[in-house]
Design a protein around this nucleic acid. Structure first.
Lengths: 243, 243
DNA sequence: CGTATTCTTGACGACCATCAAAATTCGTGG
DNA sequence: CCACGAATTTTGATGGTCGTCAAGAATACG
């Protein structure tokens, strides 16, 4: 009971078989240029082709467990992932959001353990890469180090932006900033209808308060929720952010 | 005026002359084993001896400006440093605390800019290292990468711990956790009397509230402040942290 | 020794967490 | 396809926490 979210209905164990889309053809990866491993050459990729698997994983899947030993990471090609940590109080907080190009479980490169749990927020596509392959490749291609350094810095920068933008000021302002943050991501997946609970876990408030504020935004016309997605009045919400 | 804290009385420009303690003798550095550059060999250090300067810097000194271009970083050998960011609201927040062994301005390795301002909280001793030297050395000694990866991870982990421990729950609990955090650091410098403003900037509250809670702790005997330092009743405060 | 900051303490009010209950959505199995 | 149960969401009412304003005390600085 401790260490587990109260409701794990939407968190299923990672599925191995039904969504395996085969060995990755990294050379043909559509988003390879924006991925952490862009510096690698064709021959590197073919050499490493063997151990890299590509998955399509449904929303709600738990991708990693907090504290578990790790020998692989995921590179996210599509979709959104939340990095969550359970608080001793029983509540849980979202520490970071990962999007296409990010590495799920980056900490494992330093510690060989996942420091936090990670869940897919939307359906995602990702490649599972053994850490040993990354280490081997980074000896081969030193440019990979610069690329990984960029990733570390981006993760740190996002943690700081969450501290400053989503954990400061009135809750109304925080949620406005969260909606703007999601709206900034230019993936269609980023415009998914986030649950009130997840909003609350991101801006450190109660689901009730998150619901109340979204109701107000909906009624004011700043926010529209239709089916799976949402849409905002950017100007109006940014005026709230500034206040 | 924007980008500068309201009160810069305690923030002086970095002093170049009077505290320069000379070229670093890295081979004899007492804390070298715990520093980021422990993997380097003697010959590496002597080769790099030239461009590394050692400083003793008084408390309150601004070590880096937010947004400034960077071609050097500092490795902290003694003392504490705060990483601060000014909020649009006029207030300012402390994003991270750096202690002996940490790298001040680590972000510059990724972006060649300082993302935040950094001030010395206590008197510090630090070595200024050109980024070009680090890049050159890391080509020479690949183990350095693992060492830097550790630093990145530690910075990220501390940002997350601040999010979880210092920005969640009642202010009373947050300040108790802050005091325990400082008490955990086994440097004598860590037991310095932190200003109410800095406490407030760390746990995101007002200086008045920080003062009120410290008053309560002092009166209860959980906290003692004597001259420059402080001391806590660990058991009592940890019982508050748990609540 | 005088001035500027910071710290302290008080009073008031706004914001928000909590409890509770109804409404809605979602997933499941019939 | 429908119906049932569970989980989430919504909305209301209430009380505590904490931010703000204000004034006095203590401290640091030149």
């Amino acid at each position: 009971m401790p260490g587990m979210p109260k409701s794990n209905r939407s968190v299923r164990p990672i599925c191995l078989d039904p969504f395996w889309t085969g060995r990755s053809l990294c050379g043909r990866c559509a988003v390879r240029q924006s991925m952490p491993f862009a510096p690698l050459q064709h021959e590197d990729l073919e050499q490493a082709l063997l151990p890299i698997d590509s998955f399509r994983i449904p929303a709600g899947t738990r991708l990693q467990q907090s504290g578990a030993g790790a020998d692989t990471v995921l590179t996210l090609r599509r979709g959104l992932v939340k990095v969550v940590e359970d608080l001793p109080s029983g509540r849980h907080r979202i520490l970071r959001l990962l999007r296409a190009g990010d590495v799920v479980g980056l900490e494992a490169l330093a510690t060989l353990r996942y420091q936090h749990a990670a869940d897919a927020l939307t359906e995602i596509e990702a490649c599972r890469i053994p850490i040993s392959v990354i280490e081997q490749m980074s000896r081969l291609r030193p440019q990979l180090h610069a690329s990984l350094t960029q990733r570390w810095n981006e993760n740190l920068a996002q943690a700081e932006r969450i501290m400053l933008d989503l954990l400061s000021g009135e809750v109304q302002v925080r949620i406005a900033r969260l909606l703007c943050m999601l709206d900034d991501i230019d993936e269609p997946e980023a415009h998914f209808r986030m649950s009130r609970q997840d909003m609350a876990a991101l801006v450190d408030t109660s689901p009730e308060t998150a619901s109340r504020i979204c109701s107000a935004f909906l009624q004011s016309g700043w926010l529209h929720e239709e089916g799976q997605g949402f849409q905002i009045d950017r100007g109006a919400l940014q005026r709230i952010c500034a206040a």
